[in-house]
């Protein structure tokens, strides 16, 4: 066991495509078992960070360590839910079959051996996210919240230690957002999972997250939500006049890091 239980360590990492730089000089460490919200305006490079961690694109500069090794594609210890995962209603596959692909979908051929183990693991994962009632129905015909639970079951079925989610809440209404976040948080705590979740609106996450990773204007900043999401901290980090507003219900809104005001999906 390593002494510093960090799931992800970045030292001077820069990201970009070709000659276009997206952000640079990112140095941070994400403790194992922690829940991190990745925030920032559209196009700031939040998904790019996920793609770096997944090993889908290389870092332009610096060093990135994911679960104690350089990022590599197909790392089975990483569970992933991509952005805008809403399935075509005609997509003819059951939720259960989709979850099963999380175990051996990357293997060649057809499933011959281990059918019972796979089926037991799939059942367990479906039960863990509470999707038992509709796992046998066609995936595309389910509601956004139901699909999101099955995506989660699929990401978790291989027993990963790191869970990456790109805007898993964006298609959900406020109530479903709260339930899904609660579910993710519970499962993560029980399994000591490290969770990185990209969100457009931090509010449903605030009760559950340990830290936020803010990405804007080519820079990354990490810290506890109370330290980072303040007018002073964000203004200083981004040398701009950034305002953090609070409404009557205690919801926070960040203004000034993008051209237009950021609208949470409320």
């Amino acid at each position: 066991m390593k002494e510093s239980a960090a799931a992800i360590v970045a030292r001077g990492v820069a990201a970009g495509y070709g000659s276009r730089s997206i952000w640079a000089d990112a140095t941070f460490s994400i403790p194992a078992g922690s829940f991190t919200a990745i925030l920032g305006p559209n196009g700031a490079g939040k998904s790019t960070l996920i793609r770096l961690i997944l090993g889908q694109i290389p870092a332009v500069a610096g060093q990135l360590e994911v679960l104690g090794e350089p990022p590599r594609r197909g790392n089975p210890k990483i569970g992933y839910i991509p952005q805008a995962s809403i399935f075509d209603p005609e997509l003819s596959i059951r939720g259960r079959d989709f979850v099963g692909l999380g175990i051996d979908g990357h293997r060649w051929g057809v499933r011959l051996a281990d059918r019972e183990q796979v089926s037991a693991a799939v059942d367990a994962s479906i039960a863990a996210v509470g999707a038992g009632d509709y796992a046998d129905r066609q995936l595309g015909r389910l509601s956004g919240g139901e699909q999101q639970r099955l995506l989660l079951a699929q990401a978790l079925v291989g027993q990963p230690t790191l869970l990456l989610m790109d805007e898993p809440l964006s298609h959900l209404d406020v109530r479903n957002q709260a339930t899904i976040v609660q579910l993710i948080s519970q499962i993560a705590r029980r399994r000591r999972l490290t969770v990185l979740l990209i969100a457009h609106d931090v509010n449903p996450l605030l009760p559950h997250i340990d830290q936020v990773l803010y990405i804007a204007q080519g820079k990354l900043a990490m810290g506890r939500p109370v330290d980072i999401i303040t007018s002073e901290a964000l203004s200083e980090i981004y040398s701009a006049s950034v305002e953090v507003l609070k409404d009557r219900l205690g919801r926070v809104f960040v203004v000034g890091l993008e051209e237009e005001v950021s609208h949470p999906h409320a």
């Binding site: 997944l54 594609r73 839910i81 991509p82 995962s85 997509l91 692909l101 293997r107 051929g109 499933r111």
Partner: peptide, 23 residues
């Protein structure tokens, strides 16, 4: 078809996740 069955099914259903899993 039998040889590529599982990864083909995976990438047909969710190309992003399949790609992340190394397909």
């Amino acid at each position: 078809l039998v040889a590529v069955y599982r990864p083909l099914l995976f990438s047909s259903v969710d190309e992003d996740v399949a790609s992340a899993r190394g397909v």
